[in-house]
Design a binder for these strands. Structure first.
Lengths: 152, 152
DNA sequence: TATTGTTATACTCTATAACTATA
DNA sequence: TATAGTTATAGAGTATAACAATA
């Protein structure tokens, strides 16, 4: 008998997703970061100079939550808040040089994480997996690169 | 250029895993349950009459956390605590008739969840995905059916 | 003295609402 | 009056430690 497996792909996705999140958290903790902070850092790197409101909207998180995240990154000297002279209510958020370096380290950590997680698969199987996962993510309406953990 | 994709399979797994968890939580909320409660209910169905200590060990969660979970299921009349006459410190935990019915509804919800999540894939692609995910889960040392969310 | 289950407590993460300063 | 950012507060969810009953 084949039929639907006892633990289907939906459960495996939830299980592996939680595992992946946990392992990633351990890796970035070595850099002094939390997973939400890394997502924000990437967003700032992609669109430097945006206001906190724009960043919050892009990540799909309440602006209040962003304050603490930005605070943490700023205290570590990874980003800079600069007042916008045209409209002094706004900050423009930028990566510092140290932030750029951290981004490079994050890329390394991400690659190591990717390799560890897919170690059981051949090169061809890895690309098959990636294609299937990307198709599901698109079908389910998930934004590329935006983790649902931010969502309101 | 091919190379490593910007958002690799590790990120897609985390993203899809969080999405799957969220959707599943919405579905079981209709049955008045939380995801951790459904995991416990399944564990009790698989091994009826075990003590809370054994159940906690099986799920990999602190025994103190199990108390609230068991309380919730008991208050809904889905399970029964029965004192063990040989050792009156222990409870033996069983599914009630209503609990059996809820298990059947959970199976239906799980199947609908599975179909929704893999809607973008053909039958053959679904089995390919399942095989690859199961291989990764085994390689990463994940227990079949045990969600890392329980882990200490 | 050890073990099962429980309660009390604290900590983390996040959201909601109220506030300030600028416009 | 409206908007950007902030602070205060409260609510989940979970872990750790202390406790009562039984062995």
């Amino acid at each position: 008998m084949q039929g639907p497996p006892t633990f289907g792909s939906a459960f495996l996705l939830a299980q592996l997703g939680a595992h992946a999140t946990q392992r990633f958290a351990e890796r970035v903790a070595d850099l002094g970061l939390t997973p939400p902070q890394t997502g924000l850092l990437r967003a700032i790197a992609r669109r430097p100079g945006e206001s906190q409101q724009v960043l919050a909207a892009e990540l799909g998180t309440p602006p209040t939550r962003l304050v603490a995240l930005v605070d943490g990154l700023e205290q570590q000297g990874l980003i800079e808040r600069r007042r916008n002279p045209q409209d002094r209510r706004l900050y423009a958020v930028f990566l510092s040089d140290k932030g750029q370096e951290t981004m490079a380290e994050l890329a390394k950590a991400g690659a190591a994480h990717e390799n560890e997680l897919t170690a059981a698969l051949s090169t061809e199987e890895r690309s098959t997996l990636h294609e299937l996962l990307a198709r599901i993510a698109a079908d389910r309406g998930l934004m590329p690169g935006v983790h649902p953990g931010y969502r309101t």
